[in-house]
Design a protein around this nucleic acid. Structure first.
Length: 392
DNA sequence: AGGATATTGAG
DNA sequence: TCAATATCC
């Protein structure tokens, strides 16, 4: 750090604030070191519309339930995005630096990077176009279409928001305009943006949400903590035999994304049918997702596992078969991601076998495991009996 | 943002 | 008979 400051000769370092505990600790150390060196170090909001400490309940606490949080922020004025600067001048001489390629970061990445790259659309320009297309073509049908995993009915902006390629403010203002024009799904879209804010509200006020059950008594729940168990391996590899689960896990491995309905299903299946600790799933999501977000994932996993704030009650067990009939009635999502059951497998389904590590020893020619490792009914029984026998 | 089963009540 | 509703998990 001292070297960096000396070499840049920087008088000031300003940056956009982070909120998850690891980044907060890092940035706090950086800020202290910079200030010690006499540098003007400042962080600013930008990642969120509502700074977590500015939203308070009537009694001065923080919100633990989404709906009141939504009610308290929905009428707030959200700062309009500034126009992009015309030109930013760089330093006249750049400090000596490593070449990025020398860090060989791709070598440390999971298998399938080339396949993943073929499915990615990155950058600010792409993010703006994605938002515009969502507002123009999709928002009117968002309410129903967003629940169907085979339909391109969501905004798809999570990865752009995660990487700062677009700001929530830009999304909010576009959504507000759509709402004023009477677009049907606009308010739902705004609510989804606020779910993201709520997750950051929670991670700020209870940073342990990323590692500990938010309801502490759930630490005593008899989940398996074995991340190398056979069932965890099958779950990660999309080979549980439960079509919705496998399709969603493969979608994630191939594209780095997973439809929201899939996320709820696979998380429910892991934590309930497979009785496995939510943190094992959270870690795998962190490895696989290109839209990885520490706040949304901590909240989401704890929601699914039943141990979080405003969580789904544990006894709400998703039936992956019922869900498939309901949200993928024509089997399109299944065909999109599972090659073994299709006569002419889709290219996306085949991509999974190109992306998967050799060590998984998968082949599209093998029979799909038609018998699920844990059936819908058996999983429900396992989960509910564990819940009824809990000692808290 | 559930599911399973029992109950109700219109037809 | 069956869809809407209620209730429990």
């Amino acid at each position: 750090m001292q070297t960096l400051i000396a070499e840049t000769g920087s008088g000031a370092v300003w940056w956009t604030r982070c909120y998850d505990p690891e980044a907060v600790a890092r940035d706090r150390a950086v800020k202290a070191a910079l200030k010690d060196a006499g540098v003007d170090a400042r962080s600013f909001g930008g990642h969120l519309m509502f700074e977590p400490w500015t939203v308070e309940t009537g009694t001065g606490g923080f919100y633990k339930v989404y709906t009141p949080f939504w009610k308290s922020v929905r009428t707030r004025e959200v700062e309009a995005p500034l126009p992009e600067p015309g030109r930013i001048t760089g330093p006249q001489t750049w400090p000596e630096s490593d070449a990025l390629a020398d860090w060989t970061m791709e070598a440390a990445m999971r298998s399938g990077a080339d396949v993943l790259r073929g499915h990615m659309v990155v950058g600010e320009q792409a993010a703006r176009e994605r938002l515009a297309r969502f507002i123009d073509e999709k928002i009117a049908r968002y309410d129903a279409a967003r629940d169907l995993p085979a339909v391109d009915g969501t905004s798809g902006l999570s990865e752009n928001l995660a990487w700062g390629e677009i700001s929530p403010h830009q999304c909010w203002h576009a959504g507000q305009r759509a709402m004023q024009e009477g677009a049907a799904g606009a308010e739902t879209f705004l609510k989804e943006l606020v779910w993201r804010e709520f997750a950051y509200h929670l991670i700020h006020h209870t940073p342990e949400i990323t590692t500990r059950c938010w309801r502490a008594e759930w630490e005593g729940f008899p989940w398996s903590r074995d991340g190398d168990s056979d069932v965890v391996r099958l779950w990660k590899q999309g080979r549980t035999g439960m079509a919705f689960v496998d399709a969603a896990m493969r979608e994630m491995y191939v594209t780095g994304r997973m439809h929201n309905r899939g996320r709820m299903i696979v998380a429910s299946y892991l934590t309930k049918h497979l009785m496995t600790d939510w943190r094992i799933g959270q870690a795998w999501f962190a490895e696989c997702l290109i839209d990885w977000d520490p706040a949304s994932n901590a909240m989401g996993w704890q929601w699914a596992a039943g141990c979080g704030p405003d969580a789904a009650p544990y006894f709400r067990v998703f039936n992956p078969e019922t869900q498939l009939k309901k949200f993928d009635p024509k089997g399109e999502y299944q065909r999109m991601w599972i090659a073994e059951t299709a006569r002419n497998a889709s290219s996306t389904a085949q991509d999974f076998f190109r992306a998967a590590p050799k060590s998984w020893r998968l082949s599209a020619d093998e029979a799909y495991p038609f018998a699920p490792v844990v059936s819908a009914e058996e999983g429900r029984r396992i989960a509910l009996s564990a819940y009824e026998n809990r000692d808290f």
